[in-house]
Amino acid sequence: MPAYIIVEADIQDPVAYDEYKKNTPATVEKYGGKFVLRGNPVEALEGEWNHDRLVMLEFPDKKSAKDWYYSKEYQKAKEIRAQGSKAKFLLIEF
């Protein structure tokens, strides 16, 4: 059953965030994941959108998604992300 990680990000340091974006794709692929969408701008059709960036990742299952998020490889990228942004990561099983 596929699982999705949805990320809402607010970017304070675009240079650090760009470095994070370079380091993340290989870690996602290693755990069978792929980017479904990543970018901005987001247009709110209802309610408010107050974030800089929206990202959605798809994994084969919830275990793969969690294995990626807690992996040693991703922790390095996560440290870089934390230097340049604040984010919420939401895990949803479909």
Rank of each mutant, 00 (worst) to 15 (best):
G32H: 10
G32S: 10
G32M: 14
G32R: 12
G33D: 07
G33I: 03
G33H: 04
K34N: 12
K34L: 11
K34V: 13
K34W: 03
F35N: 02
F35M: 11
F35D: 02
F35A: 08
F35W: 08
V36W: 00
V36Q: 02
L37W: 04
L37M: 13
L37V: 15
R38G: 13
R38D: 11
R38A: 15
R38P: 00
R38S: 15
R38C: 11
G39Y: 08
G39S: 10
N40E: 10
N40T: 14
N40F: 04
N40R: 12
P41M: 11
P41N: 13
P41E: 15
P41G: 10
P41Y: 08
V42A: 15
V42S: 09
V42L: 06
V42M: 06
E43W: 02
E43M: 10
L45K: 08
L45A: 03
L45T: 05
L45Y: 03
L45G: 07
L45E: 01
E46H: 06
E46T: 06
E46P: 00
G47E: 10
G47V: 12
G47H: 05
G47P: 00
G47A: 11
E48L: 03
E48C: 01
E48W: 01
E48K: 10
E48Y: 00
W49H: 09
W49S: 07
W49G: 08
W49Y: 09
W49N: 08
W49R: 07
N50R: 13
N50Q: 12
N50I: 08
N50V: 09
H51F: 05
H51P: 00
H51K: 15
H51M: 02
H51G: 00
D52L: 04
D52T: 07
D52M: 04
R53P: 01
R53F: 11
R53S: 08
L54S: 08
L54P: 02
L54Q: 07
L54G: 10
L54V: 07
L54H: 07
L54E: 02
V55C: 01
V55T: 11
V55E: 00
M56S: 08
M56T: 12
M56E: 11
M56Q: 13
M56D: 03
L57I: 03
L57E: 01
E58K: 14
E58V: 11
E58G: 06
F59V: 14
F59D: 14
F59G: 13
F59P: 09
F59N: 14
P60D: 13
P60S: 15
D61E: 03
D61C: 06
D61N: 15
